[in-house]
């Protein structure tokens, strides 16, 4: 299975590359690749939770406690965001 997909369908907690730095403004820099990104409040929160080592289920729960959103939308959006993280090589391939 391609790396991106395996990350996406993994039941295990996904690991975000630990050396990724994220600023107050939502500026994200990956020192391993030199790429930089911009993200919003919800994205920042997900990355923080990932860095804490939380599982997808835990992240879903945490976000639902924080934001006014239904579960279906949140699940869909989280999956899409994780896909983008994988796509941009921000997930740690060796973490699993």
């Amino acid at each position: 299975m391609p790396e991106v997909l395996s990350a996406l369908f993994a039941m295990n907690p996904m690991k975000i590359s630990q050396n990724i730095a994220i600023s107050e403004n939502g500026f994200l820099f990956n020192p391993a690749t030199g790429d930089s990104f911009s993200t919003n409040a919800c994205g920042k929160e997900i990355i923080r939770l990932l860095q804490e080592g939380q599982s997808q289920a835990q992240i879903l729960e945490a976000l639902q406690r924080e934001f006014e959103v239904d579960q279906a939308s949140l699940e869909k959006d989280l999956a899409d965001f994780l896909y983008m993280l994988g796509n941009y090589r921000l997930l740690d391939a060796n973490a699993q």
């Binding site: 911009s38 939308s73 989280l78 941009y88």
Partner: peptide, 14 residues
Amino acid sequence: PLKTYERPYLRKLN
């Protein structure tokens, strides 16, 4: 009160 939700977003700065 819960925060207003905006779906997570990630944009590469090119």
